[in-house]
């Protein structure tokens, strides 16, 4: 069952189209990441779902209930959608306890117990309740902000790049902790980020936004292996994109004859390989190339290789490392992906 349902949602600011006919379904209890460069419209999409903005056209529904369409608009404070902004946005004039309790009515029974429970949930010590936001570290602030958003038991949680302000090490740890809390509570989550690695590791479903359009939605593995166009392919990771001629599941390109994932198409097309699919062949078979640069990266290094007229990127382990100027042979492993012909 799908909880959140966006149908052909558009939004513009003056002459600028921020969201262009976006369709998106998010399943109950799942984690979705919307990834895109800055200015791609991903934050506007989040604001439309939260109810801070109204769509110009299209409809937003949650659990079958319309939140916004041509006739209806449910304002943010009636939506019960949790929101975790970039820097946590704790109220600086309120203690941790009052921040977490902000969305709880004053007179409900067991209010203090609920706040304490939320502290446990986000793995913060209860003694911190009396602290002030400025006395907390960045990661702690994010946890308090998460507890605050969880307090009203939202059906849906929106995360607006909540980890980007944190240090690299803390970022991964906080992301894992947040993901754990949310999935244990069974809360449907949408994360907006510009960091493709974060999106791929966090979500069950990833949507790629570009120029106000949601260009592709799918599982992380699917998107990484089978992007629809070169731009998406390169956004999600390093890609080798080559012109080729297709014929019955095989492609002829500068790397020779490569197996592809689409047996139905034939004729000229673009194919994509991930650098890790290209490995140095030890038996001398495969396609020859000259190493023109090595970017040492510890356990694996990036090789820049001249193959015929082209320069391509490959990876090798430390053990296999060639020298610059050496001629090597490479053989692709797995299937090359055929990109959409339109593009």
């Amino acid at each position: 069952m799908s909880t959140l349902d966006l149908r052909s949602v558009s939004k513009s600011y003056g002459a600028v189209l921020a969201i262009d006919r976006v369709d998106l379904k998010v399943a109950a209890g799942s984690r979705t990441a919307i990834v895109g460069a800055s200015g791609s419209g991903k934050t506007t999409l989040l604001r439309l779902i939260a109810g801070f903005e109204a769509p110009d056209t299209g409809a937003v529904a949650l659990n079958g209930k319309t939140l916004a369409d041509q006739n209806v608009f449910v304002p943010a404070h009636h939506r019960h959608i949790g929101y975790l902004p970039q820097d946590g946005a704790l109220f600086p004039h309120l203690s941790v306890e009052r921040n977490i309790g902000f969305g709880l009515a004053r007179d409900i029974p067991g209010r203090d117990a609920r706040i304490a429970e939320l502290m446990d949930l986000v793995a913060l010590d209860r003694t911190m309740l009396k602290r002030w936001p400025h006395e907390l570290s960045g990661g702690q602030q994010q946890r308090v902000a998460l507890a605050r958003a969880m307090a009203q038991r939202p059906q849906l949680m929106l995360l607006d790049e909540p980890f980007s302000a944190l240090d690299t090490g803390l970022r991964a740890a906080t992301r894992k902790a947040v993901a754990k809390v949310l999935s244990e509570s069974g809360i449907t989550t949408i994360l907006v980020t510009h960091d493709q690695a974060e999106a791929l590791s966090f979500a069950d479903q990833v949507g790629v936004m570009r120029n106000a359009r949601l260009v592709q939605v799918g599982s992380p593995a699917e998107l990484y292996a089978r992007p629809r166009d070169p731009a998406t392919a390169e956004f999600l990771g390093e890609a080798i994109i080559l012109p080729a001629t297709l014929n019955a599941g095989w492609a002829d390109c500068c790397l020779g004859r490569v197996a592809v994932d689409d047996a139905t198409r034939s004729g000229p097309a673009q194919i994509m390989l991930r650098p890790e699919q290209l490995q140095i062949a030890t038996d001398g078979t495969g396609c020859p190339g000259i190493v023109i640069d090595i970017d040492f990266g510890g356990s694996t290094s990036a090789l820049t290789i001249q193959v015929a007229e082209r320069v391509i990127l490959a990876r090798c382990t430390n053990a296999q490392m060639p020298t610059v100027g050496a001629t090597i042979t490479m053989a692709p492993t797995g299937l090359a992906h055929v990109l959409d012909e339109r593009i």
Binding site: A50, G51, F52, P75, A76, H77, H78, R79, H80, I81, G82, Y83, P85, Q86, D87, A89, F91, F102, G103, A145, R148, A149, A151, Q152, L158
Partner: peptide
């Protein structure tokens, strides 16, 4: 403004 947004997402009217 983000603080106002958070307050609204927590059920407060504008």
């Amino acid at each position: 403004v983000e603080l106002e947004n958070v307050a609204r997402s927590l059920g407060r009217s504008p």
